[in-house]
Design a protein around this nucleic acid. Structure first.
Lengths: 116, 116
DNA sequence: CGCCGCTATCGATGGTTGTCAATATCGACT
DNA sequence: AGTCGATATTGACAACCATCGATAGCGGCG
């Protein structure tokens, strides 16, 4: 299993000097790439946007399978990737598993790309 | 060869309604994922940051090979991917090929991720 | 013209990944 | 206990991709 990514580490070591300010070290680039790889998939982007647009920015797996149009194991896999990357949290209530947006997670990588 | 990505199309069709506002369509997700896949690679992220930190946000291929630590064909390949994705432009002056940042390209995808 | 240096393309290869069917797990309810 | 429904895990397979060596194209320069 991949370790949980520390987005804050990237922004800390590269604080006030994001991607466009000065060259990334190999380690920083590796970490940022791993995080972005979690986003660079159409199914995962759609999952994120569906969760974000849901009530309380939270959705049950059962509500995600149909709109995505993929098999249940595949959806479960993508949700795991997004969770490991720090974009979603998983909370099981009864039989159902609810995935919720991690506040600020998307904003963090967004700020790493922007120039200002 | 992959077609040049139209980042403006994404931001246009998703204007004022980014990733977190309402569910992405399959086509939007596909396009955004393709663009992000170009970024989700450590070598390409480092190339971008080196170019961005150079004079005039522009760098020669010969100046990029050594700091990246990859073979010349591999570097050339990554630069092509970034160019096709709309993040770099290529201009050949004499024997040398100079790659420059496309202004606003990174900011565009950055704004697609952020909530506000 | 002929050589040389810079860059791009080609072909091959090993590794990664998205996907599914099958199966396991686990909670709820009877 | 036993069944059922929801979710996660496993195993397998095809597609994709990053990388390199070899080679081709192409200016500059002697």
């Amino acid at each position: 299993m991949t370790t949980t990514l520390e987005l804050t580490d990237v922004s800390a070591s590269a604080c006030c000097a994001p991607l466009v300010r000065e060259p990334l070290t190999a380690a920083e680039a590796e970490q940022l790439a791993t995080t972005m790889k979690a986003l660079a998939d159409p199914a995962r982007l759609r999952l994120l946007s569906i969760v974000a647009a849901s009530e309380n920015a939270e959705a049950c797996v059962c509500d995600l399978i149909e709109p995505i149009g993929l098999s249940q194991p595949t959806v479960s896999h993508h949700l795991k990737v997004l969770t490991n990357a720090g974009f979603l949290t998983r909370s099981k209530r009864g039989t159902w598993a609810y995935f919720a947006l991690v506040p600020g997670a998307l904003d963090r990588i967004s700020q790493l790309l922007v120039a200002s």
